[in-house]
Amino acid sequence: MKRISRRSFFKAGTTAALAGILGFKSAPAQARAFSGYAHSKAVLVDLTRCIGCRSCEAACNKEQGLPAPATPFTDQSVFADTGHLGHRRPDDKAYTVVDRTDSPLADHPLFRKIQCNHCLEPSCLTACFVNAYTKTAQGAVIYDPSVCVGCRTCMVACPFSIPAFRYDSALHPRIMKCQFCYETRLQYDRPPACVEACPRDALTFGERESLLRIARHRIRTRPDEYVNHIYGEHEAGGTSWLYLSPVPFAEAGFDTTVPTEPIINYVKDFLAIVPMVLTIWPALFAGFHLLARRNRVHPDSADTEISDE
């Protein structure tokens, strides 16, 4: 994994600031047309196949060494006991959960596996000013706790509300979210643990382009079983996790208000300023301060004219 030290962060910040001064566009502003790394990996989730067995949750728990669940992964009552939110969501103890929706349009309950969607242009990554996030060439959006300062901007930035915060230590802030099994599997081109655990092949792993082809093939050959839409093909600028559904996605519990433009396009101008604020301003104000002092000490010197320019 690419590690970013605090020092290299400041180096990167300074470069961005200099680029800003010299009139170059900074990195976030260039990302507009990025449609993903070639051959990057993805997962296709087929809601018509998922039966809510939660094998994927158990596999994730084991692979990532997460804390033991409150009740066994065979417990089906979790689908009903969803608390005030009304649906299940990943948290600091579970990188992935399966949520149930009862739609009047389907004659059986619908199950939807939820985890980080590993956006092609992740807004968590863009929002993070210490560069704790990396989008790897294989498609994973991974997080490096060693540089995280715990500001939680990524939690606000994510259009799918995925990053969760582990509160047990104020000194070692830690965001908890799906890493696409990058360390143990994806970097060796192996599918994540959840995919291998699914008994119904509801999860298919492969190159994003191939999975889009398979998804279209399923829609074309079974038009009465799927709605004609692949969630994640364009949502949030495109994601590495893609979904097929038998009912309109809003009916299956998906947020269909997520814009198809990458989120960063809305905030990039602001975000481009953030490193500049952090790196130029101290120098700028120190300069003002020095110049002001100089003016006071040598009110009649030639330097005064220079500072007036």
Binding site: P191, D201, T204, G206, E207, R208, S210, R213
Partner: peptide
């Protein structure tokens, strides 16, 4: 072996 996107290619 699980099916994968490579089958489509």
């Amino acid at each position: 072996k699980r099916p994968s996107g490579e089958d489509a290619a």
